[in-house]
Every structure is written in structure tokens, then in C-alpha cells.
Design a protein around this nucleic acid. Structure first.
Length: 251
DNA sequence: ATGTCCCAACTTTTGGGA
């Protein structure tokens, strides 16, 4: 069973790449972020033609999360708490409970959006603690947090910036403390495994990346972990997203 | 350090967000 998380940066703009991805990657479940679409625009029929059931928590200009599955899709939940931004969707796919998360960016440490980000991560932890027990769980998404300095191409550049601050990293550790592991880092303890490169400055060519797209698996999945990897080829070519898909394969 | 992309709109150019 192969599960991917991918921030597509507009499903409308990315549709040709998404079609190509689904046709060539043999992926069972895709956790999608930043659809930037209303539910009315979401391509349910086109996805069905490609063999995927889908569920969307759409908004419009911003945010929007979705799940595509070819192994069943039931018991959909939308929204973490009473916020108005579409950043969280969950479903049961096969024998897994899966969640697609688009964590707020934070913008800068002194911006109110940073406090919102920390609160959102607190709410995610609360949800996983109180409402996600039972089946094995995969929580994936664009976390907008690089868990450690290994996940940053040059930590010096990010001193005093969001995505690397201790309060953000502490919240990821608090999620792990509930009984989850970071699949990509677990499979590759020493490789940076960047998943995002800024469109500007030729960052992809220069290797200026961050690992901020993460797949947290409940500890009961550890014996089933085959591998976890970054699909860097999908960051290349015509009109790519600025994020690469991140995969985990489970036996 | 800012070389791009995507969206909306008082839309053919600008501003906000990432």
C-alpha cells in the first residue's frame, strides 16, 4: 500500500500534473493540500475516471485539502475545530485512518499568524489524542515545519524565521509522543530528503530545500514500513508545484 | 536574498500569500 502526501499549489493549475502523477505512480492514497478550489469546482468525476474515489474540504482562493483513494474511502471528517479555514480532512481508506493536513504557514515569529499556527498544531495533537484512536493512523501533509536542522539546506539562513523555531518543533515532538513516527526520517536517518523548494532564486537547481511535507504513522505501523521517499521528478518539468510528493509504502 | 507562481479583482496590472 502506497500513500503519498502532496501540496499541489492549486489543483486547477496542477491538474495536468496530477493526472500524470496518478497514471504513473501506482499510488493507493493521496493526501492533498492547497487545492485552492470550491467543492463545486473539484474534479470528482475526472478522479473517478482515473480510478480514485475522493473527498474534498474546499474553500476557494486559499487552502483546501482532499483525499484520493483507490482502496475505499469512508467516514470522512472535515475541519479540526471551529476555524473557518479548510485545512484538515480525514477518512478511512483500506485498514487505515488517514488525515490530510495543511498547517498554517506562520509567516514570521512576530505575526499573529504564527500564534494561529501553534494553536492549530495544539488542536491537531488534541484531535489525534482524543478522536483518532483505534485503526492504524497516517497523518500527512504540509506541516510548514522542518523538524530538525538536517531538514534545512542552510540553518543559518533560517535563524529567527518560522518553520524552524523551537515551539513549532516541540509541537511535532508532542505529536510523536502520542505514539507516532516520522516515516521518511525513520527510513532515512541521515538523508535530508527535502520536499519543498522555493520557486524563486533557482532554489530547486541549487538544492536550497526544506523537508516540511511529513507523514506521521502510528507506531503499530512500524513493522509494516517498507520505505518512504521523495518523488523529486514531480518537482521537475512543466508547471510543477513547489512541493514534491512524499511517499510511504506499508506492507 | 528574493531571479516565481497562483489567485482575485474596482481585471490586461496590481497586491497578497506562499
Amino acid at each position: 500500500m502506497k500513500i503519498a502526501t502532496w501540496n499541489v499549489n492549486s489543483l486547477t493549475a496542477r491538474w495536468p500534473r496530477v493526472e500524470d502523477f496518478l497514471s504513473t505512480r501506482d499510488v493507493d492514497v493521496v493526501l492533498v493540500q492547497e487545492t485552492k478550489q470550491t467543492d463545486a469546482k473539484f474534479p470528482f468525476q475526472q478522479l473517478e475516471a482515473l480510478g480514485y474515489e475522493s473527498a474534498h474540504h474546499g474553500q476557494g482562493q486559499w487552502n483546501g485539502v482532499a483525499i484520493f483513494s483507490r482502496v475505499g474511502l469512508t467516514d470522512v471528517v472535515r475541519g479540526l475545530y471551529d476555524d473557518e479555514e479548510a485545512r484538515f480532512i480525514g477518512a478511512t481508506c483500506g485498514d487505515l485512518r488517514v488525515f490530510s493536513c495543511y498547517v498554517p504557514n506562520g509567516r514570521s515569529l512576530d505575526n499573529p499568524h504564527y500564534a494561529f499556527k501553534l494553536r492549530w498544531l495544539d488542536e491537531l495533537r488534541r484531535y489525534l489524542r482524543d478522536e483518532a484512536s483505534g485503526a492504524p493512523v497516517v497523518v500527512g501533509g504540509d506541516f510548514n515545519v522542518a523538524p530538525a536542522d538536517l531538514d534545512v539546506y542552510d540553518p543559518h539562513v533560517f535563524e529567527g524565521a518560522t518553520h524552524v523555531s523551537e515551539p513549532e518543533r516541540e509541537r511535532l515532538r508532542a505529536i510523536e509522543a502520542l505514539g507516532y513516527f516520522d516515516a521518511t526520517r525513520h527510513a532515512h536517518p541521515d538523508d535530508p530528503c527535502f520536499s519543498w523548494w522555493d520557486y524563486r532564486n533557482g532554489s530547486f537547481r541549487r538544492g536550497w530545500g526544506l523537508r516540511i511535507d511529513l507523514l506521521f504513522c502510528s507506531n503499530d505501523l512500524q513493522p509494516r514500513l517498507v520505505d518512504s521517499w521523495i518523488d523529486r521528478d514531480t518537482r521537475k518539468g512543466e508547471k510543477p508545484s513547489d512541493h514534491a510528493p512524499v511517499f510511504v509504502e506499508l506492507a
